[in-house]
Design a protein around this nucleic acid. Sequence first.
DNA 1: CGTAACCTTGATTAAGATCAATTCTCGTGG
DNA 2: CCACGAGAATTGATCTTAATCAAGGTTACG
Lengths: 232, 232
Amino acid sequence: MDSSVLRNVSMFSVLNDKELSKIYSFSTPKSLDKGEMVFFETEPYLGFYVVVEGCIKIFKIKGDGREQIIHFVHPYGTFAEVPMFEQYEKILNDQFTYPANAMATEKDTKVLLIRSGLFYELLRKNHEISLKMLGALSKRLRHLNNYIETRMKDIPHRLAEFLVQECRRSGGSDIHKVEIEITKHDLASYLGTIDETLSRTFKKFQDDGLIQMKGKFVTITDIKKLLRIAEE
Amino acid sequence: MDSSVLRNVSMFSVLNDKELSKIYSFSTPKSLDKGEMVFFETEPYLGFYVVVEGCIKIFKIKGDGREQIIHFVHPYGTFAEVPMFEQYEKILNDQFTYPANAMATEKDTKVLLIRSGLFYELLRKNHEISLKMLGALSKRLRHLNNYIETRMKDIPHRLAEFLVQECRRSGGSDIHKVEIEITKHDLASYLGTIDETLSRTFKKFQDDGLIQMKGKFVTITDIKKLLRIAEE
DNA sequence: CGTAACCTTGATTAAGATCAATTCTCGTGG
DNA sequence: CCACGAGAATTGATCTTAATCAAGGTTACG
């Protein structure tokens, strides 16, 4: 792994080799096993992270102790940028904590910590980076917006939406076969439900002839009906 | 109304008089009656808004046609900044729409439209503004984060949380009296429920001796218990 | 005053959570 | 190679919360 991985991070795409190397040399790499935490939401804020390999889930803990997954971050994606811009002074004084919890969902997950001090310096010098960062935060806001919208619908709707999205994301060949890359438990948490309800909803979709399922592989047999459920 | 109102907007606080006047002279003021729309989420994006007077509610329409209020914007607050940073070219080509709906909740509500073209120009010239904007977007993200967290709890919890927050926001004198400044209907929508359930929850709180209610005025009689319900 | 919007209350229903067993799957060690 | 055990997934019965349906009652304002 070297500084070239940073070039794929949208926000850093405006930097030259020298700047990239500098960021890379000051960043802290971390390797994680499946289930290992990057941070808890109670920890003091150090800076934001770049995913280099594997996958990270960002989640809240509900009152009953259960996880509620907000999103997954894949390679070259970033997470925990937000506290960076909430009054710099407070960050320096360790007053800030992370906004949620972050855990690796795959073994051999690798992340880079970009410390806020260093990054803030960069931000002051390089105007382009702030503009990129504005783009990144906007994207995050769109995602949360979409997340909230999805939450207004029932579980079959949410699952249908997820399947359609996954189908679009993976490949794009018209064979409607999707591999669910996360555990069913994580999927349930992401959809805001529990394992049993997810299982029942999958079964209902199968009984209604919308999909066929074999372990982690789902074949969509009636994309039209599925789309109808997905969009209201 | 003149350009000095803009000085109170956090993002514009770094500008000098000349710059403020320029923004003001290029902005479009709009007066609204209670219930009038600023924009629908289907409309092409023109730019973001500053609230000068009154109050704006930002909301989504659910599948059944009901409103789901995401937040309220008060004087000197801004809304609809997000699409501004999602690929400038698309905005110019009218490809973008608003992320939600915006409606005045009070009569004599006044807003200013800051067109994206003008603002983007400003952003390129003035680095400080991007940094302020990063702060503004972060705040918005925090709010959505908090919103999502609240949604994981039941209705009594959400109402208790709302009452405690309102109590803190208004005054701060230790007489625990709160005026609910929005309609009960809007409050229900904000809490993600319906009028009947809100009414019943208020009743339950009264029966349990937590509050006393008279129209729009709520007196908190047992702040300790209310806090216990509010925080899990 | 009168009427429309706002609010409350009661009875019923439905979606999904909870509780409680099983069954399935797969990696590990004998 | 098989047997074991743990975690993952499924299934059924029951329970809870809040939505829905249906009246009434209250308030505010022209």
